[in-house]
Nucleic acid binder design. Structure first.
Lengths: 198, 198
DNA sequence: GTGCTAGGAATGAATGTTCATTCCGGTTGA
DNA sequence: TCAACCGGAATGAACATTCATTCCTAGCAC
């Protein structure tokens, strides 16, 4: 009963759920939330329109599941095994390059998170997930400031500059349909480090 | 026929047109393009739904007019009387502070331009307006690089970092419902200059 | 092995709602 | 009186969601 052939039977329809999530992610990136019709999602996922409502309570619930899932995936990629005892310089490099990897390997997920930042249809839990991540970053910045390794100033402002610069760099990629080279990412990292170092 | 009393007759309904543009700008920022219903725009503008179609061919034409209008307003505020003979350091300061002024004084317009960056419903002319602005900035960056005053590297990448950092700083404002102080803007300017200086 | 059956999963046409757009009767200023 | 202008009800298309029906397969009887 637990051999691979029966696995998809034991958790029925998991693959359909994944197909719906994948199709919805793509379409929300391409057309936005209100610009995407539920039957379109069904068509791209290769399921009936009604099937979506077997897995998700509503279109809004669907977009919230995607948001939280991808936000947590991002957090895992970036923070898993974070070198908390390394120098701030090294921590910054690791953070930047992990973000670059996530964004490069998961273009749609990255665009989705960007696009749906603070959207009206995100519910309290989705906002809470976001808020927890921000708080975590703020505490890292505050710590580095206390050790005199980052410029002084509102932590949220410094974080905004760094994250904004990252998104700005990535956006060039997306806008031009090209992808940034490893060298480009390293240059960007060096630039932004010089922006915030004390 | 040209005295003030008859002006609003000679350009009929100019004030209604402005009311529609203003209401639509606000609502598109609050709810997005597809999330905003035309009758809602009419209500906030204090006109009938049909009246909107006396001034704009369609909802899509309306959003494009707003986009181009605000993009050009931004370009004017930032580039009008630009000190083209000053040092790159001084030019950077002027650019940054003018952008800060525009964003602070025109929160909705700034958010609108951010939100509708590369949206599907922007037409060829709107894209052309955007493209011309980018080209202009690229040539400024390239010139400064040639004089050895900016880091070398893809001009689009450096621009992306700077503009991204600006947006990131501004976003803190919007997210927290607070506004950045003059000191905050100066700190941010100093940080970002150090990111791109040679 | 074969045929049957129960019941959960999947479907997509049907439903009621909401939307962008049109159109016509009323209003206004000259 | 008249032409230009306006409002908002009317219209048809498109939408999110539902639900009566079909499909699939594990389990059983033989």
């Amino acid at each position: 009963m637990t051999n691979p052939a029966t696995l998809s039977r034991r958790v029925p329809g998991t693959d359909k759920r994944e197909a719906i999530l994948g199709a919805a992610l793509e379409l929300f990136v391409e057309r936005g939330f209100f610009g995407t019709a539920v039957p379109e999602i069904a068509e791209r996922a290769g399921v009936g329109a009604g099937t979506i409502y077997r897995y998700f309570e509503s279109k809004e619930a669907l977009v919230n599941v995607i948001y939280r899932e991808q936000k947590l995936r991002f957090a895992n990629v970036v923070l898993d095994g974070f070198p908390s005892t390394a120098t701030t310089r090294e921590q910054f490099r690791v953070l930047w390059m992990r973000m670059a990897r996530f964004a490069t390997d998961n273009l749609d997920a990255f665009s989705f998170l960007e696009l749906h930042h603070h959207a009206r249809y995100l519910d309290a839990e989705s906002r809470a997930v976001e808020h927890r991540m921000v708080q975590l970053f703020v505490s890292v910045v505050t710590g580095a400031q206390a050790r005199g390794e980052l410029k002084l100033g509102p932590p949220r402002l410094l974080m905004g500059l760094v994250m904004g610069a990252f998104v700005g760099a990535m956006r060039n990629c997306l806008d031009e349909g090209i992808s940034l080279t490893e060298a480009d990412w390293k240059l960007a990292e060096q630039c932004v480090w010089e922006a915030v170092r004390s």
